[in-house]
């Protein structure tokens, strides 16, 4: 029987990958972010997951608007790294877990979630920016990526993501093999990458969101996409994906670790939860 051992909410950003690759972990600008990941990495070492189920978004690297899936599931044995325009980073391709991923596809569709099933799905900074901060980069832990459209409107509601989480939980609990699984929700927190509000982020809302993710996720799931964009920016709407992680964990959660820093234009949050 597979077990859900916990959940991680984390921001993602190309700049995190650049800073990591340049070895800027101890520089004053970046230290509060990178040091914040140390306890989370220790938790990962302690709970020994053997599968990571990551709800994230592609940034028009794998998918294009000729056919843009609302949900897309990577079922391949390998997930290649996308070239986001600057060339690929010095990281190996990610290992997948086709057996679990196909089980997840069957379970989700049974549960009335209908992802596009992708046997080849390259992944971008939506996963690869934070993952080196949490695991060894020889990627010993397979990853099953579940991409969500949060870019081309209409995008799914916060409530839909929260409910997706409960469907992920059912899929994990119905998987017959012994696997220790961590579910990730990644994106956000608040940021605005264009227009008159460029660079605006909202630390009060970011922290309220992380508070309520623990204690009132159902309330967060009732907020509209409009409200998320007003509070956190049009790009910050990515934060709704954290609700999938929280939905998977169910009722009451125990906080293991939390960090928040906003060195540049984005509020970077990190939250580690156990059931």
């Amino acid at each position: 029987m597979a077990t859900l051992v916990g959940g991680i909410g984390t921001s993602h950003a190309p700049t995190i990958g650049v800073a990591w690759d340049k070895g800027q972990q101890k520089e004053p600008l970046w230290a509060p972010l990178f040091e914040g990941y140390v306890p989370a990495r220790q938790w990962m070492t302690d709970v020994k997951p053997d599968l990571l189920l990551i709800v994230y978004n592609d940034h028009v690297n794998q998918f294009f608007f000729d056919a843009y899936p609302t949900f897309a599931l990577g079922v391949g044995a390998v997930h290649a790294q996308a070239d986001e325009g600057w060339g690929k980073r010095p990281l190996p391709d990610l290992p997948g877990d086709p057996d679990f991923a196909w089980h997840l596809a069957r379970s989700l569709i049974e549960d009335e979630f209908d992802p596009t099933i992708c046997q080849e799905m390259s992944v971008d900074h939506g996963i690869l920016s934070f993952l080196p901060l949490l695991t060894d980069t020889n990627w010993t832990i397979p990853v099953v990526p579940l991409a969500v459209n949060v870019i081309q409107h209409p995008i799914p509601t916060a409530r839909r993501l929260f409910r997706l989480g409960t469907a992920l939980r059912r899929a994990i609990e119905s998987y017959p093999k012994d696997k220790r699984i961590v579910v990730f929700g990644t994106g956000g927190l608040t940021h605005q990458l264009h227009g008159a509000g460029f660079g605006r982020h909202n630390e009060a809302w970011d922290n309220e969101f992380m508070d309520r993710l623990e204690t009132d996720p159902a309330g967060l799931s009732e907020l509209s996409i409009q409200e998320y964009m007003e509070r956190g920016g049009t790009e910050g709407v990515e934060m709704i994906m954290w609700l999938a992680m929280r939905g998977a964990l169910g009722g009451t959660v125990k906080r293991v670790h939390r960090n928040y820093t906003a060195p540049l234009t984005t509020g970077y949050g990190l939250l580690v939860l156990e059931t």
Partner: peptide
């Protein structure tokens, strides 16, 4: 109009 100063990427 309601997300001041930004362009929501609509269909």
């Amino acid at each position: 109009d309601v997300i001041a100063g930004s362009y929501v990427f609509t269909g």
